[in-house]
Design a protein around this nucleic acid. Structure first.
Lengths: 232, 232, 232, 232
DNA sequence: CATGAATGAGAATTCATTCAT
DNA sequence: AATGAATGAATTCTCATTCAT
C-alpha cells in the first residue's frame, strides 16, 4: 500500500478553510464591516476564550467565563458569535491557517548535519506554534467527538503535515521504509503527541530535549540505512 | 536530563488504581455483595456506558442515555454508581489494569528478525487492547482537563509503557539515542497516537499496515547504527 | 364556482389529528405509559395552561407562569412537554376533537319551528364548547401566524363545520343562495366570530340573545324564499 | 335587551383615537417638525413594519427585523418611536381613521336590485380596505389580549360599523329581526371574519365570490320577508 | 439625523440527583 | 432491587433599549 494513505487523512475534508478563515466568527455568518471598536472587542473575546479554554477546557468553559475575562457583557458575546462553538471555530481556523502555512515550509532534508539542523529548526517552529495554540488544540481534542465537523479541521491540518513529510520521505534514496506515506503519518503522530505530553505537563521535558529527541528519531528514521549518526 | 524523565510521567501519580474503591461515593458502597441479578445490572450499565461514550463522547454522554441503552432506570443507575464519573472510573480501572499488565510483558528486543517479530506481536497486542477500550480511551482524552484526577490514571498507564520501553532501550548496545528515557516516551506517543488516528477513522490504514509501520520505525530507531533493515 | 370552496378550508390539512389527539403532548414524542401520578400532573399542567392563556394570552404566557399555577416545578414541565407550543398543541387537539365531533352532530334543518329549535340547540352547544375552550381558541388566534402549522388545526376545524353546514344548506330546496359552500363558510364565520366578540366581552350580549340572533339569521338565510318568519 | 347593544361594543372605549398623540413616549415627541428626510425615514419604518407584521405577526416581529427591512439602524428607530407598540399604534390609527370614514359612507339600503348593488359596492370597499391593512389587522388580532388598550381601538372600529349598520337595519320596514342592533354586530362579524379567512388564505375564494356571498346573505337577512331574490 | 456597539434583565431548557412507592 | 416522577440549580440565548461617536 503506497499512495492512498497519503490522501487518507483528508478523507473527511469538506470544510477546508472557507469564509471563517479570517477568524471572524460573526453573528450567524453576517457580521460585516467592523469598526475599530468592534475589532477590538472581537479580539478581546477571542483572547479571553483562549485563556478560559486553557484553564477550564472546552466543555467546562462557560460563555459567562469568557465574557467575564473579556470584561464585556453577555449580550455582546452573541453579537460576535452565535455560540461557544462558533467562537471555537474561529480560533480553529486561525490555527489551521498557520499550521498549514508552516507545513508548506518544511525544508528538503539532507542526511547531513545541515539537514539535521534544518529539521530541528522546523520542528522547533512547529512546537512553538503548537504551544501558542495549545489551549485551542486541547479544546479540539476534547470536542473531537461524534459527527461534528469540528474534528475535520484537525484532520486536515494533520493531513497537511503528513503530506509535507511524505514528500520529503519519498525523496530519500534509497528508501528506508516501505510505506513512506504511512510512516509519515506515524511520525506526525509522534511529533504532535509528544509535544502534547510536554505541554500538558505530563512530562518533565524542556524544549531542547524535546527537539533533540524528535529530530534524532526522525533523522534516524529517514536515513537509517545510509548513515550512522546525525552528528557525523 | 538523563535518567529521571522515566519517572516524569508519574509526576501526578497519586491515585494509582484503587481509586475506585476509595473514591466511591455513598451508595455504590453496596457494590460489594452483589448477587447474580446485581452483577448483571452492573455489567449492563458498564456496557451501555461504553456504547454511549463511543457514540457521544464523555461530556456529551447523559446518564439518561446510558440508562436507556442499559434498559434500566435512573434510580437504578445511582444504586450502582455515585455519578457518571464514578462509572467512568470503574471503566478506566479496567483499562488501566490490562494496560499495565501488557506493559510488563514487553519482551527484550533483539536486532534480529526474531526481535522484529516479537516486537510486532507485542504492538499488535497493544493495538487490540487499545481498540477494545477505544471508547473509554477517547473519553479519557476528553476528560483529561483541568484539575480532575482522571487524567492521572492515563498518565500512569503511559508511564508504565514508557518505563518498560526504557528498560529495553537501555539494553541496546551501543546506545543509539542519547536520552533513552525521553525517546521511549516519544515512541510510546507515536504508538498511542497512531493507533488513535487509525481507530478514529481519521486514517485509512489497516491493522497490518499499522503494525508494519510502527514496528519498522521502532526497530530502526532502536538499532539504527547496528543494522540495515529489519527484514534482512 | 360550486364545489371547490367546500374543500377549500381543508386546503392545508396535513396534520389532521395524529398521535397527539389524545391530548398527551409528551416529552419529544415519547412519554409512554403514565401512572396515576403522572396523569394527574399532566392534567394539572394542561389546566394551568388554560388559566394562564386566558389571563395572559399565548405569547405573553411564560412557562414559569404555568408551572406556578400548576404548583409544580420547571423541570417537571419539560418532562411532559417539549415546550409551550407542544403543550398548546395538546390542548388544540382536544378542542379539535370535540369540535369535529360536534360538527358531525349538526341536525338536518327544516323550515319549521322544530327546525329552528333544533338549530338553536345546536348553536347553543357550539357556543358552550367554544366558551369552554375560549382560552385555547384565543391563543390559537394569536398564534395563527406565519408558516407554523398550528393554524392548520384551526382551519380543519372550521372546515369541518363548514362542510357539515354545506350538507344541510344543499338539502334546502329550492336553493336560496347560489354558492351553498361559500355561504356555509360565511355562516360559520359569523357564528364563530360573534361568539368570540361575546366571550371577549367586547359585546354585552347574553347567551340567549346570541342564540336568538344567530339562529334567526341562519334560519332566514337558509329559507328566505320559502317562508316568512321562523316563529310562525 | 333591545337598544343598548349598539353601544355595547364601545364598552371599553376610553381612548377613541387621539391615543397616538397622547400616549406617545418621550422621543417621538419630536415627530412634529419633520423635514423631508425625516418624513421619508418615518414612512420607511412604517412600511417596513407592515411587511414584517405580515410575515411574522406582531409578537414575533423584532425591532431588529423592522429596522433591517427599512434599511436603517436601531438607533434611528427609537428616534421616531418609543417602542414597537408605539409604532403599532400609529399604524392602527391610520386603519381606524379610514375604517371610521368608510363606515360613515354606508348607504341606505333598499330591497331592490339597486340596493343590492350599492351594498355590494360598499362591502367591496370594505374588503379592499381590509386587505390593504391586513397585516395591521392581523397584528391587532394578535395583540388583542389582556389589559392592553390596543384592543379598544379595534372594538371602536367594529362598533362604528355596527352602528352604521344598525341605522340601516332599523330603517327596514317591517323589521325582520327582533334585535336589529345585535343582528348588526353579527353581520359585521360575518363580513369581517369571512374577509379574514379569505385573506389569510385559509379559504380559496376570490373577491367576487366573497362579495356575492356576503351581499346575498346580508340582503336576504335584511329583507327576508319582503322579497324573494335580490336578482329578481 | 444617523448609526454601530453595548448592555443586561428575562425566558427557555437541560440534566444530575433525590425521593416515594 | 427497581423505577417513575420530581426538582431546581446552572446555562444558554434573545432582544428591547440606551449610548457614544
Amino acid at each position: 500500500m503506497n499512495a492512498r494513505p497519503a490522501r487518507a487523512p483528508s478523507r473527511r475534508v469538506p470544510v477546508s478553510k472557507s469564509a471563517t478563515s479570517t477568524s471572524v466568527g460573526g453573528v450567524p455568518a453576517q457580521e460585516r464591516k467592523l469598526r475599530t471598536q468592534g475589532k477590538k472587542t472581537l479580539r478581546k473575546l477571542l483572547d479571553a476564550a483562549m485563556i478560559v479554554f486553557e484553564k477550564r477546557g472546552y466543555h467546562a468553559a462557560r460563555v459567562d467565563d469568557i465574557v467575564k475575562v473579556a470584561k464585556t457583557s453577555h449580550g455582546t458575546f452573541y453579537l460576535y458569535f452565535a455560540n461557544k462553538e462558533d467562537l471555537f471555530r474561529a480560533l480553529l481556523a486561525d490555527v489551521s491557517d498557520e499550521m498549514t502555512e508552516l507545513s508548506e515550509q518544511l525544508p528538503s532534508i539532507a542526511p547531513t548535519r545541515l539537514g539535521y539542523d534544518e529539521l530541528r529548526l522546523w520542528i522547533g517552529q512547529f512546537f512553538d506554534l503548537y504551544a501558542r495554540y495549545y489551549p485551542v488544540i486541547r479544546a479540539w481534542t476534547e470536542s473531537e467527538v461524534g459527527d461534528s465537523d469540528l474534528g475535520e479541521l484537525g484532520v486536515n491540518v494533520l493531513g497537511g503535515f503528513a503530506n509535507a513529510l511524505i514528500t520529503r520521505v519519498a525523496e530519500v534514496d534509497p528508501p528506508v521504509v516501505s510505506n513512506p506515506d504511512i510512516a509519515a503519518v506515524a511520525m506526525v503522530a509522534m511529533i504532535e503527541r509528544f509535544s502534547y505530553y510536554v505541554l500538558s505537563r505530563s512530562l518533565d521535558v524542556d524544549r531542547d530535549q524535546l527537539l533533540d529527541t524528535l529530530t534524532s528519531i526522525l533523522h534516524v528514521g529517514l536515513f537509517a540505512g545510509s548513515r550512522r549518526r546525525p552528528t557525523r
